[in-house]
Design a protein around this nucleic acid. Structure first.
Length: 472
RNA sequence: GUCCCCAUCGUCUAGUGGUCAGGACUCAGGAUUUUCGAUCCUGCAACAGGGGUUCGACUCCCCUUGGGGACGCCA
């Protein structure tokens, strides 16, 4: 059994989106599961749409998700870029031309567009009419595209690992353009040449490519290349069942990082879209590598459901150790003005432990973390409900007692409960104003934990400040 | 319009001829509680429709309907 070789081949026209990320993940998992190779190839043959920023964004997204790739033996860089391989594609196109399996087409783009429009208008199938196919006489001195001469009789069957056998009639396929009139090669030529050259054994991609597959198989046949195995995975749709797009919310994986999602949660969610393993919902990466199989991917499209993602994300946060949560938390703390150098990590650990079970995402966690490290804290509008004249006596009483109390959980608990008894109030009545005064928020971990972590100095200072404010 | 794919709770899915059609998210109710949350119970909720095949269809076949994709000198 020879080595499994797969690739992820995005075109750099934008960020790495959810669908692409899942395709990359499936490829990656398949390769890692089978002990094979996973390559990254950038399909940038259309210069008008490709940008370097987009390439960076894709690499960044892959890194974030933890999807590493192998360097292809034939490449100088760990990323294969098609623009660097134009000579190969052109020579392959020339080869087909020479062998009579392709021909020059002098129709202009404008003419073709016009004919297509007309066909659509008359409800005819918009196909190339093949008018340049059999042209004879001297070649005109005009720019030309090269078209592949497709066979017109018989059928092509795609043996797909997820869709099963899919049959296409050759007569429904027209002669595709393999090089443009400016000499640049097109997608269908490039994929085939590259996948063959890189000895790709399994092509795992979105099922929007299923229709391209028979065309590509014709090219494999023409070049006498071995045909790889195909696996077309279903697409991801929005809540309205339309193709996932910006109007459904965030589609860039980076945006999820910004919004406080953990890459592990993202991976876990994406893999469960279309694939399952009994009743298991949560998987470590190693479990996925062990258990995932493309052949088990479902056949129908899945709808992207942010709620489930939220749940998975919260699960990862809740069970995450401080060591696990700190790296993704730091950039969000930095945004709130808390620099890494100024953080007392001894103190950060208990904060995370107290916060992780009530944080749905890392942004929330960072916002709740801030008050333990900032000197000046912002006060939520909602705290006004508790920081008022009516509660002034409570704050005063608490302040006096706390001044004499060691800042540890149990003594703090005793102290505050003592105040409750003395004033004849429930703990909630006492805890809320204190919480508001020391955290600037109306929600936080348990008040005894908050005070202990905060320390006596900061806590008293903040309570004093509020007392002074209320008096004036 | 032509070709291709798809069809189990609202959503993600299990199911491969005989199941009370299972799990998860969401939602509702309850328990717990020091705020928020978390947690634990409980509950609501599905085989798109119609024909076959079969002793028996969610499961196999066909049709209809619905959804998606492709039909580019985009990838």
């Amino acid at each position: 059994m020879s080595e499994i070789r797969v690739r992820f081949a995005p075109s750099p026209t934008g960020f790495l989106h959810i669908g692409g990320a899942r395709t990359a993940l499936f490829n990656w998992l398949y390769a890692r599961h089978r002990g094979g190779k996973f390559f990254l190839r950038i399909e940038d043959t259309d210069p008008s749409r490709s940008t370097d920023e987009a390439i960076e964004a894709i690499l960044d997204g892959m890194h974030w998700l933890g999807l590493d790739w192998d360097q292809w033996e034939g490449g100088s860089d760990d990323v294969v870029r098609q623009t660097e391989r134009f000579d190969l594609y052109k020579s392959k196109a020339a080869e087909l031309l020479e062998r009579g399996k392709a021909y020059r087409c002098y129709c202009t783009a404008a003419q073709l567009a016009e004919r297509r429009q007309a066909a659509l208008k008359e409800k005819r199938v918009p196909r190339y009419d093949g008018r340049c196919r059999e042209r004879s006489g001297p070649a005109p001195d005009l720019p030309f595209a090269i078209r592949f001469k497709a066979r017109t009789e018989g059928k092509i069957v795609v043996n797909d690992l997820v869709k099963g056998d899919v049959v296409f009639d050759r007569s429904t396929m027209d002669d595709l353009i393999i090089t443009r009139s400016d000499g640049s090669p097109t997608y269908n030529l490039c994929v085939v040449v590259d996948d063959a050259d890189m000895a790709i054994t399994h092509v795992i991609r979105g099922d929007d490519h299923l229709n391209n597959t028979p065309r590509q198989i014709q090219l494999y046949e023409a070049f006498d290349y071995p045909v790889p195995k195909f696996a077309h995975v279903p697409m991801i749709l929005g809540a309205d069942k339309a193709r996932l797009s910006k109007r459904h919310g965030a589609t860039a994986v980076q945006q999820y990082r910004e919004e406080g999602y953990l890459p592990e949660a993202m991976v876990n969610y994406l893999v469960r879209l279309g694939w399952s393993h009994r009743d298991q919902e949560l998987f470590t990466l190693n479990e996925l590598i062990e258990k995932f199989a493309v052949e088990e991917v479902g056949t129908s499209a899945a709808i992207f459901n942010p709620e489930k993602l939220n749940w998975i994300n919260a699960r990862y946060i809740k069970t995450g150790t401080p060591d696990f949560l700190i790296p993704p938390l730091l950039p969000h703390l930095a945004k709130l003005g808390i620099k890494k150098e100024s953080i007392d990590f001894e103190k950060l650990n208990p904060v995370i432990l107290a916060l992780r079970e009530r944080s749905r995402n890392i942004v929330e966690m960072a916002e709740s973390t801030a008050c333990y490290f900032l000197d000046e804290i912002p006060y939520d509008e909602k705290t006004k409900k508790f920081l008022n004249a009516e509660n002034l006596p409570i704050l005063k009483a608490v302040r006096d007692v706390l001044a004499e109390t060691p800042f540890e959980h149990d003594p703090l608990k005793e102290a505050l409960q003592g105040i409750c008894e003395k004033m004849g109030k429930k703990l909630a009545k006492i805890a809320q104003p204190v919480r508001a005064a020391v955290t600037g928020k109306t929600v936080s971990p348990g008040i005894f934990d908050v005070l202990e972590i905060l320390g006596k100095e900061k806590a008293l200072k903040r309570i004093d400040a509020q007392i002074a404010l209320l008096k004036s």
